[in-house]
Design a protein around this nucleic acid. Structure first.
Length: 455
RNA sequence: GUGAUUGUAGCUCAGUUGGUUAGAGCGCCGGAUUGUGGUUCCGGAGGUCGCCGGUUCGAGACCGGUCUUUCACCCCA
């Protein structure tokens, strides 16, 4: 049989033990803060019914969904005529009814509606699972990646937004990543579109403005023009696109400009409220009202969040927002929610680039026992067990291989302490403990070893 | 989906205008050292040159296709 070369699909990755230790450090840190803020864990299946996913992420999103073929002879139900038509979109609905989840928010909305009678509202959940997008991979962009979501649903209070900003701040402080937390509000964007008389072009306008950093003012104007925004409207937009100053200065300007737009006023009010609360708190990261922050899914209706790493160019590492009616499409209208999503894989890339990992993570082995033979090995077993019961990661080499091989094993695994117990030590009832970093070696009993590690 | 780009040992890369048996460093394995890793010395193994096809007396090199990598656009964590 011909050997096949092992490979994995485009845009996916293997993670070796070292990488997993680092990833778990990220997940553990985020999870810790999720819990501190009162979120409970849930999980949903990798696959959802396509009817749940389709149409929730815009036309572009539908294209990026991974679809799963029906089981069995999936073509048997397709007519000759449909096959000959060669219309992929039409055929897809006949031969595929499941798809891999594209994010965690829509499955969460489905979950909430499906389990509404079992849940207590406001419901706060966190969810750390992979999602899949059939995108072309590039820097910081994968086809399989983890999202770490925290959402609260069933409360319109802006205190939730405030909580989320603090949560973001806490997580990135803990990870030692310098970030800028950018805030905007969909209602302000609507107000702006209304103010310039192009309410129906809000998406085109905001998507264009979002690219300000990348393509400059001229590029933004050109793009709006190409999308059919009236020149007069573009002119009126200029002071808004160029808006600068402190958050409160920006708000003052907007308040004046948007006074005629009911929804715009509402947006400015919401933003002021959130920023006011935050001023009284100790948020270490920079929090900025950024009108160019417009990306995001079509379902955001209020506050929009985005977090950028200050020291690495990698796009946003966290995003989120408020959605007033995500559950409506599943038959549960008028339930407002707000949430954020940490992009674990991009955070991983940032930490790698800045080399910000702690040297020893909770995953690593702390004590290694050399195995000198069957009697010696047997003698070690209860000692290893005792260390583990004391919460110390420990292992005994499974065979009495050459000393050199065993030492190399411990060295390669970066294990800080090696215990050697041969005939001498057994007789004296002592452990010969070698500190692998300093090379020092001392005899001691188990209690002393435990104290040495725990201190 | 559009336009570029990459692929030679486990890793990072050399490889002349197409010409014998494709190289290096690191890593790996063994030994110097039968209870001492990381340093040193000696020795060794390891390659269908991404894959398929074409041009040629002859292809790692040239051509076509395909997969993969990276990047930009679209969009996005």
């Amino acid at each position: 049989m011909a050997q096949q070369k092992p490979s994995i699909p485009k845009g996916t990755r293997d993670f070796n033990p070292n990488e997993m230790a680092r990833r778990n450090y990220i997940f553990d840190t985020i999870r810790k803060h999720f819990k501190l803020y009162g979120f409970s864990a849930i999980e949903t299946p990798s696959m959802e019914n396509l009817s749940t996913l389709m149409g929730k992420y815009g036309e572009e999103g539908d294209k990026l969904l991974f679809k799963v073929l029906n089981s069995g002879d999936f073509l048997s139900k397709v007519s000759e005529e449909q096959l000959n038509e060669k219309n992929s979109n039409k055929l897809t609905t006949k031969i595929s009814e499941k798809g891999l989840r594209y994010d965690l928010t829509v499955p969460f909305a489905r979950f909430v509606v499906q389990h509404r009678n079992e849940l207590t509202f406001p419901f706060k959940r966190y969810q750390i699972q992979p999602v899949w997008r059939a995108d072309r991979p590039q820097k910081g962009r994968y086809r399989e990646f983890y999202q770490c979501d925290a959402d609260m649903i069933g409360s319109t209070s802006l205190l939730n937004e405030v909580d989320l900003v603090q949560l973001i701040d806490d997580v990135f402080q803990d990870l030692s990543i310098n970030v800028s937390i950018k805030l905007n509000n969909r209602k302000i964007l609507s107000g702006i579109a209304e103010f310039v008389g192009e309410a129906d072009k809000i998406i085109d306008i905001t998507v264009a403005i979002d690219k300000l950093d990348k393509i400059g003012l001229e590029g933004v104007n050109k793009e709006m023009e190409a999308k059919g925004v009236f020149p007069k409207a573009i002119e009126q937009l200029q002071p808004i696109i160029n808006l600068s100053g402190t958050n409160s200065e920006k708000l003052d300007t907007l308040k004046e400009l948007l006074a005629s737009s009911e929804i715009g006023v509402k947006g400015v009010e919401e933003m002021s409220t959130v920023l006011n609360y935050l001023e009284a708190l100790e948020v270490k990261s920079e929090v900025e009202l950024d009108l160019t922050l417009a990306r995001g899914l079509n379902y955001y209706t209020g506050t929009i969040f985005e977090v950028k790493a200050l020291d690495v160019a990698i796009g946003s590492i966290t995003g989120g927002g408020r959605y007033d009616d995500l559950t409506g499409i599943f038959g549960m209208p008028d339930v407002s929610g707000v949430g954020i999503s940490f992009g674990a894989d991009r955070i991983y890339d940032v930490l790698n680039e800045l080399d910000l990992y702690p040297e020893h993570t909770e995953d690593s082995v702390q004590v290694f026992f050399v195995n000198f033979g069957s009697d010696e090995g047997k003698y070690c077993l209860p000692l290893v067990s005792k260390l583990r019961k004391n919460g110390i990661n420990a292992e005994l080499y499974p065979a009495s291989a050459k000393m050199k091989k065993q030492m190399k094993y411990a060295n390669d695994k970066n294990i800080p302490f090696v215990v050697m117990i041969g005939g001498n030590e057994m007789e004296k009832n002592l452990l010969s403990v070698k500190n692998m970093e300093s090379g020092e070696q001392n005899d001691m009993n188990l209690e002393e070893l435990i104290n040495l590690i725990k201190r």
